[in-house]
Amino acid sequence: MTGLEVTLRAVRHRGRRAFVPYFMAGTSNEWLRHVEAAANAGADAIEIGLPFSDPMMDGVVIQEAAKRSLDRGTTLASVVGELASVDVGVPLVVMTYYNVLLHGGLERSAAMLAQVNVRGAIVPDLPPEESSEWSSACAPHDLATIYLVAPSTPNERVAMVAQRTQGFCYAQGRMAVTGTTSEEGDGASVAAAIRAVSDVPVYVGIGVSTPEQAQRAASYSDGVIVGSALVRRILDGATPNDVEDFVRSFRRALDASHE
């Protein structure tokens, strides 16, 4: 079992619902302060986006953040360099697209990320069928390869994906790319399908943007991932204090959810 999964299972064992905020690396000079603020405010793990020019699974907010980051010259190496200067105390998971890792060199990318406390990677354009080279590169570094299950995934496939995922299984809350919404999604049925075949921690992401939605999602899963709602605030100038408040509001909702 990967180190990430050991940590996240322990979170669950303590009776705690995990909160995983997403940050796009390199959107401003302050981005690492945002990450630290989130860790201080009770995030259990943090997703770090490595920007790609053509983010197929991302909506307008994360597209804008990726563009801003790339315009500032962000690269895999620059992010690793910056992460080396901090210890946020919770596991980091990167989210990026396959071409970024390919060009860093799969072995080299995995080694570099593992050196700076990154414990897993979500690569949305790399389904299990295509990922054998990447997961072989990750294995020696204890870097978890995290897969998504979508509302469109049929049950036989859910079993395969849940069996292959490491760390946690990403339950896609709705049939959409990343972005904010007020609609009720499909998270409950996706999480139930995963739980029926596996006891890996299940986190719901995509379409979770308010503490109320997070609380509902936590009633049928082990945690939530919040991206666009937070990134929108950061693009609009949120300070590390604002980020702390944002994360605390989710923390409170999740902690209240099963008292």
């Binding site: 396959y98 069928e129 295509e130 998504l148 995934t153 049929p154 896609q172």
Partner: peptide, 20 residues
């Protein structure tokens, strides 16, 4: 079977589109 012509091709899509 993996949709390749030599080294090229494949199916690098999000899980949401895999079934389609």
């Amino acid at each position: 079977a993996s949709g390749r012509f030599g080294d090229f091709g494949g199916r690098f899509v999000p899980e949401a589109l895999m079934t389609a």
